[in-house]
Simulated scan of single mutants.
Amino acid sequence: MEVTGFKGVGALIVSFVIYLIDVINEAVVVLIFFMLLDVITGLLRSWVTKSWDSPIGFSGVVKKVGIFAMIGMAAAIEYMVMSVGQDPKGMMLLGVTSFFIVNEGISILENCAQIGLPIPAVLFNALEKMHRDPSGKEQRLVRSPMLDRIDKKELLKENEALLHQLNKKKEEEETK
């Protein structure tokens, strides 16, 4: 329930912003772009993790077709409302599309995290919490243990120590 609530709030915010800037038709274009990015990052993730699985890929394509079916349903309902003289101003279509934009964005973020890209701790923790929920994505988010150990201050200290060692070796070689 928390996952759906999170996506719903995200969709509400995206819907409101899109409504304010009056780009209702462009929301579908953004959704298609996000779907394309999701497919690309999904392929990269499966390549990096060496986990090619045709049924999972096919399932993703089927889900994306289902998304367009739901958007079509929302458009049909809006058309029906407009045919009786009401003006929904595209809000139903915008809300449904925004929900799926948020959903695709989360999937892209998950794919990037599984590839090994550094994800801010706040976002990573939110993704991890979503995966504890049974209604979350079917695969658990895997992050490289190396990324958990990285602390910027420690990394700077290690870089300084390595630089000092390199300079020391360079000086020793020059004195020989």
Rank of each mutant, 00 (worst) to 15 (best):
L147G: 14
K7A: 13
W47D: 07
F6A: 11
P55M: 02
A69C: 06
E172A: 09
N159H: 06
S144K: 09
W47I: 09
R140I: 15
L162T: 04
N25S: 15
D151R: 13
I108T: 01
P55H: 01
F16W: 13
H164Y: 09
G136C: 03
I56E: 03
L117I: 12
V14N: 02
V3Q: 09
A121R: 12
S83C: 05
K63M: 04
V23D: 14
L123M: 13
E171M: 10
L123S: 10
V62T: 09
V9N: 09
K137N: 05
E128V: 15
I21K: 08
V3P: 10
K169I: 08
G57W: 00
F33K: 12
V3G: 11
N167H: 11
I115V: 08
V17S: 05
G136N: 03
N25T: 12
D87N: 11
R45P: 09
L93I: 06
V3R: 11
G72L: 10
M92W: 11
P145L: 06
F99P: 01
Y19C: 08
M82C: 15
A76D: 04
I119W: 08
G116P: 02
K153I: 09
I108M: 00
E160N: 04
L123R: 05
T175F: 13
T49L: 00
I101D: 00
G116K: 02
A75H: 02
E158R: 05
D133Q: 14
W47R: 05
W47F: 10
A69Q: 09
V96L: 03
K169F: 15
S107Q: 00
E173D: 14
L12H: 07
S144D: 08
L20K: 14
V28E: 15
L20T: 07
K63N: 04
N111P: 02
F6L: 11
R149S: 07
A76F: 13
E174K: 11
G5M: 11
L37C: 05
I56W: 00
I119N: 04
H131C: 07
L147T: 15
P55E: 03
A113Y: 01
I71W: 00
P55K: 01
E2R: 14
P120A: 13
E160P: 04
V84W: 15
S83N: 08
L36W: 06
V28I: 14
D133M: 14
V84R: 11
P120E: 10
M146Q: 15
S135R: 12
F99G: 00
I108F: 00
T175H: 12
S54H: 02
L12C: 11
S98G: 01
K176L: 14
W47V: 11
K152T: 12
Q114L: 05
S98H: 03
L12F: 07
I106C: 02
S46D: 02
A113T: 05
D133F: 02
I21S: 10
H131W: 10
M130I: 06
V3T: 10
M82F: 06
P88L: 04
T41C: 00
I13P: 06
V14I: 06
K64S: 00
P145R: 14
Y19Q: 08
A113G: 04
D87I: 11
L155D: 08
S51Q: 05
M80E: 12
L94T: 00
E172I: 02
V29Y: 09
